[in-house]
Write a protein that binds this DNA or RNA. Structure first.
Lengths: 179, 179
DNA sequence: ATCGTTTCGTGACATTGTTACGATACCTTG
DNA sequence: CAAGGTATCGTAACAATGTCACGAAACGAT
């Protein structure tokens, strides 16, 4: 079966989706109304998968390591679902821009982060508004992931790892002492 | 004239480009070979513009403020050239993925950052390999910009500003004390 | 001045998003 | 159980787009 992952975005056409679903093209339009609607569904499915993957993380007693592990899981998700992530966080499909409902999906993921961050704040590891911190942390992870996907973060695995951990440690250390 | 900024990505077609250039479609193919080639040219032009905008920054004696100002200029560029930035840093066009030459263009921008970061390191403000720091700083800025463009960073200007400065300050503070 | 090369315009082809138009299956209601 | 309405689906078509073949024209070199 040809999927997003195997054929990339350019192979993603309504006809092909219909064919591989064993039905005809208008059926897709009957169900999703639009190609954008179809893409939107995949978008939501992506966030469900990410959420499910985060939920399956083994609980970690240390709040710091717990947060670190969550970021690592995010990174893994993006690496293993490159095209899907481009759709979720980038602008892979031209005619699909995130609307209010899509923002909610993103907010759900962020909420997951916020809880873990709150634990770190309550443990005295860092200071600040968990929501702001979640935004910053997620933005950094998203930027690093985008660069890693595009090959901009370095050619060797070692340098990419080094930069990821540097970013996380620096952010956490900087958040330790308020302002 | 219809441009990328006014009509977005969906209006960007080889026929239209040819028409507004006062020529015919195959002329475009003669010049750029491909639509990807045409897009690539815009990609490079984008990095030239970004570089030119960074070069026009008034020199700042304080290395910290200098770096901060550079990041602010990056943010401004992305905000004022939303579609172009999507093309440069995201994956706005499906059939165009960054190759070796494109990576060089990105490296040029990063080099600009590295010099300013080196100044901060030499001034004792932060510690670490300037190249690693540049990667991390650029990734964070790119992630924040992407979220801001998509509307994920918050609805109020104040919260967006707060998160930008939080990210920068936290990163710099965290880089101050090595490891 | 002539020839070869480069550039360019007309027209065509394959693909894609999208929809009109019937046909079919299914579900409700008497 | 049968009839009618509705939702769904397949065939075919249309418009737009990327791309290219095929000459025509322009332009420089000899």
């Amino acid at each position: 079966m040809a999927t997003l992952a195997s054929d990339g975005i350019e192979g993603f056409t309504t006809r092909r989706v219909a064919q591989e679903a064993g039905t005809s093209t208008p059926a897709v339009y009957e169900l999703f109304g639009d190609k954008a609607g179809l893409v939107r569904e995949i978008f939501f499915e992506g966030f469900r998968q990410l959420r499910s993957q985060l939920d399956q993380l083994a609980p970690e007693p240390d709040p710091y390591r717990d947060l670190e592990q969550t970021v690592a899981a995010f990174r893994r998700f993006v690496r293993e679902n490159r095209v899907l992530s481009d759709l979720m966080f980038g602008r892979a499909f031209a005619d699909f821009g995130p609307g209010p409902d899509e923002l909610k999906a993103g907010a759900s993921t962020r909420k997951f982060l916020i809880d873990k961050i709150r634990r770190c704040v309550e443990a005295g590891l860092i200071e600040g508004d968990p929501r702001d911190i979640a935004h910053v942390l997620l933005a950094a992870a998203q930027g690093l992931s985008a660069q890693e996907s595009a090959g901009w973060l370095g050619t060797s695995q070692a340098s990419r790892d080094r930069r990821w951990t540097l970013a996380f440690r620096a952010l956490m250390a900087g958040l330790a002492s308020g302002r």
